[in-house]
Design a protein around this nucleic acid. Structure first.
Lengths: 117, 117
DNA sequence: CTAGGTCACAACTCAATCGTGGTGCAGTTG
DNA sequence: CAACTGCACCACGATTGAGTTGTGACCTAG
């Protein structure tokens, strides 16, 4: 989209921490599940709570983290809070990671005798 | 490389944890610095230790984590252990994240008065 | 105004992890 | 062989984050 060559070589410290922080946000299965569910469209806390079989407080907390990271947006309508994907680029990230995971799994399968999953 | 559309919609649990685990590996500034330094080519633990101003044990430990994640490779030659990038796709990830960070920074700058970096 | 439902915040517990110090092992040198 | 160097493993505080419980704020309905 924009400049695809943004990184100076010795990555400066503050940028380094921002990058790590962003990775850390995605380093939790629950948050990935939330994002994955939000892929279908905006949803309320209650809907996400039920879809993921998690507690309301936990869902709210993780949504708060995703919100602060700028990955989702919140719009309060009436008695509900609707969350939606704000930065669709996270899916590109996930797919990249999935590629790496796939590669790893393939190697494992090869070592184990070539059986599929 | 391979299929670029690998993700079924409700991401299955085990895959979910693998993805999160991979993100977690990159969620540490020290490891990103190690990868960034290894971008120049293979290096020994001592070289990395000096380049990053970190303790030998810490460097070795993080390299072990990166090694287990399949992101670097180790080759022992004589009395030294040479580490090198094994999965160059991690840089694509970092650049994607940098894109997101840039966007965030731009928005912040816009809010603060539109000054450039 | 009262009752019920939805969401967010605060405090707590528990597990994982970072960094360090100490130590063992392999390889090199004289 | 003996001493030294380079690296990895183990165990220990100390910090961080996830998940739960409890509670309060806000909106809606009757």
């Amino acid at each position: 989209m924009a400049t695809t060559e943004p990184i100076p070589h010795p990555i400066p410290e503050p940028l380094l921490e921002l990058i790590a922080k962003r990775f850390r946000v995605l380093a939790e299965p629950m948050r990935i599940r939330l994002l994955d569910r939000l892929r279908e469209g905006e949803a309320t806390v209650g809907e996400l709570q039920e879809a993921l079989s998690a507690s309301q407080q936990n869902v709210s907390k993780h949504l708060g983290i995703l919100l602060e990271a700028g990955m989702v947006s919140r719009s309060k309508r009436g008695n509900h809070a609707y969350y939606a994907i704000a930065d669709a680029s996270v899916f590109a990230l996930c797919e990249q990671v999935c590629g790496g995971v796939r590669k790893q799994l393939s190697e494992l399968e090869a070592l184990l005798g070539g059986h599929a999953l």
